[in-house]
């Protein structure tokens, strides 16, 4: 994962609530065995409308998406995060996110910024004409008009994003603790430890 400290540029003022992952990337795009190229399928149904915001010249390749409440609800498909990445999106700002989507986004280096609705509304207005800056180090979103909004982020996620850390590698470094748990479980809960071996 590439380190992320700042995301700056145009933001797509999308703003809709309850955007599910079927809207972000429809199921037939899930047949791929790769993570690449899913941007072409992103928001496909919405993009059939020639006036859609995603294909307006000024928002093409914009690194930020501004959405409404409960963004990314529904299916656990990580393809939603991959599709956004492939469109060039590196951060999403919304009043709330679904749990699974925000985890998937984080694991792909996409910053999810939670701000209150009135601040999101202000950014939706600014984004029509001007760029937005997100600084992860100081945890602030700023505009060219002196708007300055602070946001919270889980310290672990912040650390991983700033340093581009691979979570699997981090956990594997705790091998001793995991092996210790496995020894305990094999003794105390052997039925869990046997797994598919139970049907041998």
């Amino acid at each position: 994962m590439e380190p992320v400290s700042e995301v700056s540029g145009r933001a797509i003022p999308f703003g809709r609530k309850n955007i599910d992952t079927d809207i972000i990337i429809p199921a037939h795009w899930l047949k791929t065995i790769s993570r690449e190229g899913l941007g072409r399928g992103a928001f496909q149904a919405l993009r059939e409308d020639p006036a859609n915001i995603f294909d307006q010249e000024e928002f093409k390749g914009a690194p930020i998406l501004i959405a409404g409440d409960n963004f990314g609800c529904g299916s656990s498909r990580e393809h939603a995060a991959w599709a956004l990445l492939d469109m060039g999106i590196k951060a999403v700002i919304a009043p709330s996110f679904s749990d699974i989507f925000s985890g998937n986004a984080f694991k792909n280096g996409i910053l999810t910024v939670v701000l209150p609705q009135e601040q999101v509304d202000r950014l939706l207005e600014v984004a029509r004409t001007d760029p937005i800056n997100i600084d992860l180090t100081t945890q602030t979103v700023t505009t060219p008009f002196q708007d300055r909004f602070a946001f919270e982020i889980d310290p672990f996620r912040k650390h991983c994003l700033l340093n581009g850390l691979d979570e699997v590698g981090l956990t594997l470094s705790r091998d001793e603790a995991i092996a210790g748990y496995e020894t305990m479980q094999a003794a105390q809960m052997p039925w869990f430890a046997k797994g598919t071996g139970l049907a041998a």
Binding site: A81, N104, I178
Partner: peptide
């Protein structure tokens, strides 16, 4: 609970997840 593909990889490799 459901997980994304990066977490599938994490579970395959470590049999654990990092969770709050």
């Amino acid at each position: 609970f459901g997980i994304g593909t990066s977490e599938v990889e994490h579970v395959l490799a470590t049999q654990t997840l990092l969770l709050k």
